[in-house]
Amino acid sequence: MSLLTVNAVTSGYGDMEILHGVSIEVGAGEIVTMIGPNGAGKSTLMKTIFGLLTPTAGQITFAEKEITGLSPDLVVRRGMAYVPQVENIFPSLTVNENLEMGAFILTDDFSGQLEEIYQLFPILNDRRKQRVGKMSGGERQMVAMGRALMLDPKLLMLDEPSAALAPNLAVTIFERIVAINASGVAILIVEQNAKESLKVSDRGYVLASGRNRFEDTGENLLANQDVGQLYLGG
């Protein structure tokens, strides 16, 4: 059963069309990675799914309801969360305040969810009162993911979660992604340097010049020589 279906979506910025009819699917509980060179339209696709950009054609369906063109604050309420690649934290707020903002739309008590996130990222637990702007890149990424998880989403979309992180930190982030997925959250990841990401993924898509290029299981994409040479750096 598919949780997210993107069907022949065309989108872009103003008159500049970036996606020329892209289709992807994410099943409930799956990890799916989307790879492709710079400018392939990966981030554009995420922004379009989340309602930050309005598609000019095609449909987006989430949890059996159409969400094409819905604004971000309504998409959040449907159970989807999004971590942008950059500027994904509130720097002058503390760790705890960042997580609280993730639960802004909730009116009931969310302390249980807060504690779960501190268990998932123990390093944040000791720094609840610290301002995030002063923290390292890896810690910021954890705060950003924690913030997105506060609403216990059905689908978590991560835009380049390991970009600009040291290799050992990237490994930690992917371990956390697997742990989040184990709790039943489907995950869609966009990655430029994607070997680590494909290793943990059920399926993957290769996007190039705004069109679908390949689609297969994570394992097969890693083994595919064409994909390897063209998109995984040999």
Binding site: F50, L52, P72, D73, V76, R77, Y82, P84, E87, N88, I89, F90, P91, S92, L93, E97, N98, E100, M101, G102, F104, I105, R147, L151
Partner: peptide, 23 residues
């Protein structure tokens, strides 16, 4: 207050505030 924190969050990063679901 929740609204006060949301005001600081919006001042920090308006786009992220909207993505987070802050009205």
């Amino acid at each position: 207050t929740k609204m006060g924190k949301a005001m600081r969050a919006t001042a920090d990063n308006n786009a992220l505030a909207r993505v987070t679901g802050i009205n």
